[in-house]
Amino acid sequence: MAALVGIPQPEAARIEQRFLTRSEKDAGRIEVTPYRSIQKCAEAVRNQRVTAICIWLRAFDPAELVSFIGDVRVTHPFISFCLVGTTDDLNQLRGIHKGWQQRFRHYFKIYSDDGTFDAYVDVVRDLFVADAIKMRALGHYQTLPGGMVKFVPQAPAGFWIQGWFSVGSAITGAGFGALLTFLLSKG
């Protein structure tokens, strides 16, 4: 589920419409929940209801924005972020510490005043879908004290069955190989 945090209309409606659209060419669709405040989104993150966050850069005080993103990065490092705003806002990052400006250079971005808005939204949707698939396939994580991440793999029954058959095949193959070598050496 993607959280749209502080994103005004009509941008929020356009993002939601494109995230929910699905065709044979799309990687998938993403459920969307809008949040007006960082606090409400932070609560959804704590309850593990969010896999991705699109946040309107200008909607929040730069210190509050950086604090929220920093906290989520420590406690839930696999949540994807997308910064949304005007070209000027996203390029200048006014009021944001230089270290965070450098970090934000590699974040997904959607430029609201650009003629490529819909294309950016489609790309971000596909990247969010890929991240969600990756996390579901690889497992889930638990955050330990001090910000350490413990990866807890999901173990479907098929994984264990395949593993036991592989071990059994290896033991059987080794046994037959030794027996065949012994018989050939006698013969």
Rank of each mutant, 00 (worst) to 15 (best):
I69A: 06
W164P: 04
V121E: 01
L20E: 11
Y111F: 15
L93M: 13
I171G: 02
F108N: 15
V84P: 05
G95P: 04
Q142E: 13
F81T: 03
I69D: 00
F108D: 12
I53Q: 08
P10Q: 01
D89A: 15
C54P: 06
M148N: 11
Q102M: 09
F165E: 03
L179T: 07
D88E: 14
I79E: 08
S185D: 12
E64T: 10
L138W: 10
L144Y: 00
P156E: 11
Y107Q: 08
P145C: 07
C54T: 02
I69E: 02
M1T: 04
V66H: 09
F159Y: 13
Q48D: 12
C41Y: 07
V167L: 14
G6H: 07
V45G: 08
G173F: 09
K109C: 01
V121S: 02
I133V: 14
V74L: 12
G158D: 13
Y120I: 00
L83Q: 03
A12I: 02
W100I: 02
F60M: 06
T116D: 12
A42G: 10
I30L: 15
F108M: 14
M135D: 15
M135V: 07
L65D: 04
G173N: 11
K150S: 15
F68M: 14
F19E: 02
I38K: 01
A132L: 05
E24D: 14
R73P: 02
V152F: 04
V167P: 10
A63C: 03
I96T: 02
L144M: 15
L183A: 10
Q101M: 01
P77C: 08
P145E: 03
F151N: 10
R29Y: 14
V72E: 10
Y35K: 03
K40I: 03
A170V: 11
K134E: 15
G99S: 07
E43D: 12
V84C: 06
F104G: 09
